[in-house]
Design a protein around this nucleic acid. Structure first.
Lengths: 220, 220
DNA sequence: CACTTGCCTTGATTTCCATCAACGCCGCCG
DNA sequence: CGGCGGCGTTGATGGAAATCAAGGCAAGTG
């Protein structure tokens, strides 16, 4: 991670504005950290000695092919934990989608063997990531463009927790690279959804879901 | 799991024909179990109270969409562990590709909190699965048909450990459902590879890799 | 304000892969 | 042996999404 950048600010921990104790909540003991839009948090191949939790904002985790094609593995929203790795190194790059606040902890303090509770929560986070990745693989391998997008919207609506109104933190390009399409196809499919009355677009990042049922059916 | 089927045989444990202690080897204490070709080992949604290890043979783990489309999440070969879940239930169905021998353990005996070594090995297995799933997502989201197939062949060659000669345990349909293509495209691409001299097909499941370098470059 | 820049949308065309269809090969079984 | 069924290959055609190209819109800047 580039700690030298002046956009990164660190403050001593005392206010982790996380929700109370949820089942698999990790109350990271660490420092908070602010990252501005598009800034890299860590890069693929860098040593993975820290674990992060999103407090505010959102990030994208992705991998690049040699010729520049990008596959976004996941987006992490407030409450989500990322940066857990099997080996010594990170296998994805993570960047902030918007100005973002994180809590950081050293990995060693988490993997600590005598804290059974922390281990269990870490375990749950990792398995949740595995589940999401497998779901994602099904989408990428076997679903059509509209199914992918419907799925994406329904998932984001659920995770952002704003009911039928969502404020997307990512660009069209990010969406395209997440669901394995091009930016043009994403755009066309969204306007198609609007024409069909499934959604309403109020500004390109603000989506109102009009027919949740129909959209859910499209998820197949 | 269908224990009633007469094709499943169980014997009391005393011969787990696994290799000695590898770094992340799980020496499952359990019973061995024989499963014949195409038989289901467990189904999506069934309670996940057991963990399995392949001793001999191979299995496919997959999910179905409502209309029958199938996405194979992974193949498990000798030495691989599968069936580890976050929640109470399995999220994929697993079937034997060929006649297969497994070792089975109850999940509870593994998650046992005071066996730190077993926990660590379980952890490694789960994270390995996550890595593979993420790699898979990159392939499914951003690679062309020939890149997918090249990738598949190279990966299988490495995992089967037979150097340049591989005996595929799965059908064309299985390959297609793994890399997100149709059976026809898989077939065509394989013959294309053969025409280009990258591989040689000796019977449809027997592949000789002729130009490993070129094939590896195709993996992008 | 005029101009640039980045992001998004829309249209035209192309391409890759899916689909549809036929056939070959081979093991199996009557 | 001959027919049958499962699997794989090959060919012809179609279609969904990619690519190529142009233009709109809004925020930022001189």
């Amino acid at each position: 991670m580039q700690m030298s950048t002046n956009q990164v600010q660190r403050r001593p921990y005392p206010v982790p504005p996380t929700s109370p104790t949820e089942p698999d909540d990790i109350r990271l003991i660490g420092i908070t950290m602010s990252v501005s839009r598009d800034q890299e948090i860590f890069g693929e191949g860098e040593p993975a000695d820290q674990v992060f939790k999103v407090v505010k904002g959102a990030v994208r985790s992705f991998r690049l092919l040699s010729d520049g094609r990008r596959q976004i593995c996941d987006f992490y929203l407030p409450g989500d934990v990322f940066g857990i790795e099997l080996g010594a190194d990170h296998r994805t790059t993570v960047e902030a989608l918007t100005d973002t606040v994180l809590v950081v902890a050293r990995r060693s303090t988490l993997g600590d063997e005598d804290d059974a509770g922390a281990n269990r929560r870490l375990w749950r986070q990792a398995m949740k990531a595995l589940q999401r990745s497998q779901d994602h693989a099904v989408t990428l391998g076997r679903r059509s463009a509209s199914e992918r997008l419907a799925n994406f919207l329904v998932d984001m609506a659920a995770r952002l927790g704003g009911g039928e109104a969502l404020e997307l933190p990512m660009s069209r390009q990010d969406i395209a690279d997440y669901i394995g399409l091009t930016i043009e196809t994403v755009s066309r499919t969204l306007t198609q959804f609007q024409i069909l009355g499934l959604i309403r677009l109020a500004g390109c990042r603000s989506v109102q879901i009009q027919k949740p049922r129909t959209l859910a059916e499209l998820c197949a």
